[in-house]
Every structure is written in structure tokens, then in C-alpha cells.
Amino acid sequence: MKKFLLFIAGLVALTILLANLGPMILLGVSVWLLYVVFKQFMKSESTAGKIGWIVLGLIILSVAVSNIYAVIGLAAAYGLYLIYKNWTSKKAEDPVVGQSDDPFTNFEKQWAELHK
């Protein structure tokens, strides 16, 4: 049952990720363009050039802010990673091997079985 629920959650996360792939790409391009504009702004020596780079940077910033839904896609990608990690994880075997007459050892084993 746990694997089935993980599979369903993985499908939902994958669907959300694919639906938000466009905004994620556009957000990445916008952030890169903002970096380029900032570098050009720092290199510019004229006041008119600096004002032009600021205006262009504000336009690109508005495009980046409009793609805030990309954060939902990033959260879905992280959820998909957690589901994959949980799906492939191997549970550690009980450290207590074999039967013993010690009541505390048997108690620990039974306690571990109750919490599975």
C-alpha cells in the first residue's frame, strides 16, 4: 500500500513539474538576463547608459516576477526527489540476530516489530 501511495504521489508531483516547466525555464532565463544586465550596468560609464540598463533590468525583473509559479514546479521537483529517495531506500535489518533468553533483548525486538 505504501508503494502504491508513493507511486500516486510521484505521478502528481511529475504532472505538476511538467505543467510548470515553461515558467521554470523562463524564470531561469530571466535570472540569467538580470545577471547580464547587472554586469553591463557596472561596466557602463555614462549616465544615459546606466539609466538604460536600469530600465531594461526592471522590465526583465517584471518578467521574472510574473513567473513566480515556477516555485511550485521547484517544490514539485523536490517532492519527486523525496519520493524517489523513499522508494529506493533499504530498511536496516534488526540489529538483534537470533533468539536469546534475555528478556530485555526480546523486548527490544518485539518493540521494534510493533513500530514498523
Rank of each mutant, 00 (worst) to 15 (best):
A48M: 11
I68V: 03
L33W: 10
N106W: 13
L17S: 08
K91I: 03
N86R: 10
Q40G: 03
N106T: 15
Y78R: 10
V63I: 15
L26C: 02
E93T: 13
G49L: 01
M24Q: 03
T105C: 14
E93V: 14
T88V: 14
G52C: 12
I25M: 05
A64C: 12
E93M: 11
F4I: 08
W53Y: 13
L27M: 10
G28H: 00
V71Q: 06
A70W: 13
V96K: 05
K39L: 08
I25R: 07
V65N: 02
L58F: 10
A64G: 07
Q40R: 05
V12Y: 06
P23A: 10
P23E: 09
V55Y: 02
S62E: 05
V31M: 13
D101V: 03
V12H: 02
L26G: 02
P95M: 15
A75G: 06
I25P: 00
W53M: 08
K50A: 04
L61Y: 09
I51E: 04
Y84A: 13
A92Q: 12
Q99V: 08
S62Q: 02
D102F: 13
W32E: 05
I83G: 01
W53T: 02
F41Y: 14
P95S: 11
G79N: 07
G79R: 05
N86C: 05
D94P: 07
I83F: 11
L33P: 00
W111L: 02
L17D: 02
N20T: 14
M24T: 05
L82N: 03
Q40E: 04
V31I: 15
E108N: 08
L61E: 04
L80K: 10
L82A: 07
L17M: 08
M24D: 01
S46N: 07
S46Q: 07
V63C: 12
A77W: 14
L6C: 09
S30T: 07
V97G: 00
V29E: 06
I16W: 01
N86S: 08
F4L: 09
L26D: 02
D94Y: 15
W87S: 15
A64Y: 09
G73T: 01
L114R: 09
